[in-house]
Amino acid sequence: MSARRLREDRLLHEAEATGGDPRRICDLFGLSVGAALRYTSTIDQPGLIEHTLRNAGPARRPEPE
């Protein structure tokens, strides 16, 4: 897993854990208010974080025919 993907996962997790508090995300990760709002807006979408976590593994190779 790349460092970028780990950071995004952590940001999404923190957004969910704080109930969507953009100020906390700004303070923890040094993001602008706009960027923090983009992450906190995801908590209103049920299943998005679970989908992201499920698909965070390495890319799957197509099976041979």
Rank of each mutant, 00 (worst) to 15 (best):
T52A: 12
D27P: 00
L48P: 00
E63R: 12
E16G: 03
I25F: 01
R38Q: 08
Y39G: 01
R10I: 08
L11W: 01
H51P: 01
I43M: 13
S41A: 11
R23E: 12
E8V: 07
L31T: 10
L6W: 07
T42W: 00
A35D: 03
D27K: 06
E8I: 06
A36Q: 00
A59S: 15
P58T: 12
G20D: 09
R5F: 05
V33W: 14
A35L: 02
L12W: 01
P62H: 15
Y39A: 04
R24K: 11
L12N: 02
G47K: 04
A15H: 08
P62T: 15
I49P: 02
S2N: 14
R5T: 12
I43G: 04
T52P: 00
L28G: 00
S32C: 08
L6Y: 10
D44V: 09
D9S: 09
C26W: 08
S41N: 07
E8Y: 05
D21H: 05
S2D: 13
A59T: 15
Q45E: 12
D27W: 02
P22W: 07
R10G: 07
G57C: 08
D21T: 01
P62G: 11
P46R: 09
P22D: 13
E65S: 10
R54Q: 13
L28I: 01
G47Q: 03
G57L: 10
D27M: 04
Q45H: 14
G47H: 01
